[in-house]
Write a protein that binds this DNA or RNA. Structure first.
Length: 277
DNA sequence: CCTATCACCTGCAGGC
DNA sequence: TGCCTGCAGGTGATAG
């Protein structure tokens, strides 16, 4: 469900709502959501620790505790709810509950059970751990430069959209914003990345940052109207120009937006504004 | 090493 | 109404 802007919105919201609580107890209802240790170990280890900081790399949310770090990936449908311990919750889709000493709970909700938790020691280099083995630089990381993207992506036999979605090079762009970035660049999502010239890579990165940055800003605006009972999933209504606009007129030229499949993902584009070469 | 496909899960919309 | 199919804002493992 969430891409980088949504995860960042969740990060900020949890930081505001929870601040720095002490974990009194953790219950895991669906064992497989804990990826790199047993649910029992996970619960035993985090118990008693305080959440010191909330961080994010790409689409990964990171809870920094006293001695350990919890890495959370929401995949397609993961979301968090902050509620009081006595409030009811959706027993069918809630897979983990963190209870704090202040009476609040952080509840992890995930309809499809795709999301994962990883637990690491705080002194370990995070980006070298399993959770990040296929994770490149965050879109906003200063090491993510046009030159780096060109060298990593341009030689490959993949489409522009696949390049944007490849988390191992630049982490954070998902299916929605990949379409929006292709539209902003004026390229058909299916164009070979090898046809994108070196001089276009600064624009590629700039548009990715502009679009994700705008989405974060919008998320931050919308999230203020959320109540805890609505959940914290970072969702918001951005003005999408092509994604999910099949059959509607292009905002630039009025041509009908087309949906096609690119690399098994639903893909929306304007056949007039987005050139194939 | 590279790219393509499957597997993981559930709910829902649309066709018959 | 009920059944079936396809599809969903993601990613790791596996197959070629």
């Amino acid at each position: 469900m969430p891409e980088l802007p949504e995860v960042e919105t969740v990060r900020r919201t949890l930081e505001m709502q929870l601040q720095h609580p002490v974990i009194e107890k953790v219950t895991v209802f669906w064992p497989r959501i804990v990826d790199n240790c047993s649910p029992q170990q996970f619960c035993d280890i985090v118990k008693g620790q305080k959440i010191q900081d909330y961080q994010r790399i790409g689409k990964y949310l990171i809870f920094v505790l006293d001695h350990h770090v919890i890495v959370s990936h929401l995949r397609m449908e993961g979301k968090y709810y902050v509620q009081k311990a006595h409030e009811p919750y959706d027993k069918k889709h809630t897979h983990a509950i963190f209870t704090f000493t202040n009476g609040l709970q952080l509840r992890y909700h995930d309809t499809r059970k795709f999301g994962r938790f990883y637990l690491y020691e705080r002194n370990e280099e995070l980006t070298k751990q399993k959770a990040f083995q296929h994770c490149g630089y965050d879109v906003f990381d200063e090491r993510c430069t046009p030159e780096y993207l060109y060298q990593q992506l341009h030689p490959r036999r993949i489409t522009l959209k696949q390049a944007l979605l490849d988390q191992s090079v630049m982490a954070g762009v998902g299916n929605i914003y990949a379409d929006e970035i292709c539209f902003a660049l004026g390229y058909d999502p299916e164009i070979s990345i090898q046809r994108v010239r070196k001089k276009d890579f600064p624009a590629l990165l700039a548009q990715a940052r502009r679009i994700l940055g705008g989405a974060m800003k919008a998320g931050g605006t919308t999230i203020r109207s959320y109540t805890s009972s609505l959940g914290v999933d970072g969702r918001f209504q951005l003005q999408l120009k092509v994604h999910a606009r099949k059959g509607q007129p292009c905002v630039n030229c009025g041509t009908e937006i087309i949906k096609k499949t690119v690399a098994t993902r639903g893909t929306y584009y304007c056949p007039k504004c987005q050139r194939k070469r």
